[in-house]
Each structure stands twice: as structure tokens, then as C-alpha cells.
Write a protein that binds this DNA or RNA. Sequence first.
DNA 1: GTCTTTTTGCAAATCATTTGCAAAAAGACA
DNA 2: TGTCTTTTTGCAAATGATTTGCAAAAAGAC
Lengths: 157, 157
Amino acid sequence: MSTSLPSPEERLRAAGQRVTSQRVLLLRLLDESKEHLDAEALYARARREMPDINLSTVYRNLAVLKEAGLVEQRYFAREHGREYFEPSTANEHYHFTCLVCGRVVEFETPLIARVRAELQARHGVRVRHACICFEGVCADCAARGQTVPVSERSSSK
Amino acid sequence: MSTSLPSPEERLRAAGQRVTSQRVLLLRLLDESKEHLDAEALYARARREMPDINLSTVYRNLAVLKEAGLVEQRYFAREHGREYFEPSTANEHYHFTCLVCGRVVEFETPLIARVRAELQARHGVRVRHACICFEGVCADCAARGQTVPVSERSSSK
DNA sequence: GTCTTTTTGCAAATCATTTGCAAAAAGACA
DNA sequence: TGTCTTTTTGCAAATGATTTGCAAAAAGAC
């Protein structure tokens, strides 16, 4: 989600990566997006401005940008097999996904850091990364009486 | 993992599911396993006792067992695209995976429940499920000086 | 500009997981 | 126990996301 970050070009240079038009475009699209995008969605948007861009270029660049710390990979709810991305931001935040409408609520909490600290203290492990995501029913959907997600109880197709 | 649970047959019946030799076997193998297994690993073990069992049967049954609440699906670390399973147990616990040796440390903490409560209180959402996993370097690997995971910095193959 | 290295587009491959289908097994009931 | 109905299985082929090999094109360095 859009914050005042340096331009895509600057961020690429700062990260020691080559500045290609494709990378600049992808980074900009991720910056501009209100939602988290997966490779396919990002590809669809990129094509509108660069019709010849290839899906594998999107995948390759997402991997490069992730490695360079310019974007972060996220996994959501039942969609865990699909990777979503967002630009790296300073503040650590987590996600809640509504199973009914798909809305993603971002939130912050110091408790996860405490869990990490506990883990470190009690088990001597060094935590490098955490994947935290919650899912359920958002306030609006609950108010609308939508309590049972369509694709939960029934077969998952 | 292995705890004193009712027999596979009993659990299947209690869950209103048909008792097939394949299901009994899979459930037993999951009970017996010290590690979390994915479909492929479970299949490999199952074949030893039932050579004709099919991989798709394993997948289908894991889905059934999950739906019935008899097993729980987990996602780990960089392996997020792959689903691992363990028998459902009463106590809620979370996982830490060592990026170097692959060891999985299970731990409990009341803090995650607090995060859920906070989410509920502050955003009005009803949390149904949480996917929580941590990764990093375990105490043993850190002691052995193994700080930089093999497949982290280099290309991810 | 020229040269070297990295990146791209394209097509084909991979890997986990799913599905269609006919035969086999499970559960219900006579 | 035998029969009937429904669910499950094995097998093969399909799917869907992601990856890879390769030759041409673009980026960065000199």
C-alpha cells in the first residue's frame, strides 16, 4: 500500500539491482495497488502498460525483488498455495482475511514480537521470519449475517 | 504427535466417516509419525504396508480427514506451497522450523490467543483460523556456526 | 560505442494437487 | 448372509501455479 517511498529506480539501485523497465513497472504497480497482488494479477496490470511483458518475467522479478528486500511475500487464508506480494514497509504488520468477502485487514501488534522473544529465550532459536495470518469473518459480513463462508463447510472447490 | 487417542476406526466412526482400510492406515501412520508428513511422504509410508494404495487416495483422504477435523493442515517455512499434516490434538500449538536442518520445534503460547482477542475487539472481526509459523536457526545449528541457511542467500533451488 | 553480463520473451517442463471414470468396497437392510 | 445403494478407490489424464533452457535484447561498465 502506497507510502512515500523512494522511486522504484532509486530503490532498485540502492539494492544493487539492475534497473529494467519491467522491474520499475512492477514495483510501481505494487506501490500503487491498494490490494495485495499475486503474480497473475500483477501480470494482468503490467500488460496494460507493457503488452509484451511475460508472466515468467513477473515471476522472476518478484523473486529478485523479494531477495533484495524490496517486496514481501505473503500467504493468505485458504489461498495458501498462492503467493501475494506487497512493497516492503518499515512497520511490521499482519493480516486478517475475511473468508466471506475476501477483504484483507492489516493490523499491528507488539504481541508477535513477544512470541518471538519467548521462542528465542525458551528454545534458544533465532527467529528469522514469521508467517502470521488470520482468517475469519469481518465485521461487515458478520453484520450482514454472513457467518458461514460459502466455501468452508461444503466441498472446497 | 503420538498421544493416547481413540483408534483410527473409532475416530472415523465418531466423525461419521466411512471406515476404509486406507483411511485407517493413513490415520495410524500420522499418529505414529514423529514428524509432520506431507502427502508424498505419507504415501511413501503407506505403500510399504499397502503397495497398491494410490497417491490420489492419499490426497482425497487427507482432505476428508481434515474436513472431519481428524487431522490438521500445516504450512511451514519456505515450504509454503506444500501441505503438511498432523493428527488433531486438543492443545493449540505452533511451529518453528529450522532453516538449516529442517527440525520443527513445537511450542505453546497464550499470546496468539491474545492477538485474536485484540483483533476481535479492535476490528470486530471473528477469527476462525490462524496460520502461524516461525522460521530461523535452531539452537543446535547456531551452536554449530550454521547461521546462514544453505538455500537462503543463494538461488532457491 | 563496444564489450560483457544480466535480463527478457517464448515455449516447454515441473511439481503438487485434482478430477473423470469404471471397478471395488462399505454400510444399510432384508 | 446376500442384495442394493452409495461412497471410495485406483488409474490415467488434467490442472494450475511456478520454473527453466535458450537465443535474442537490454543494461551497465569502460
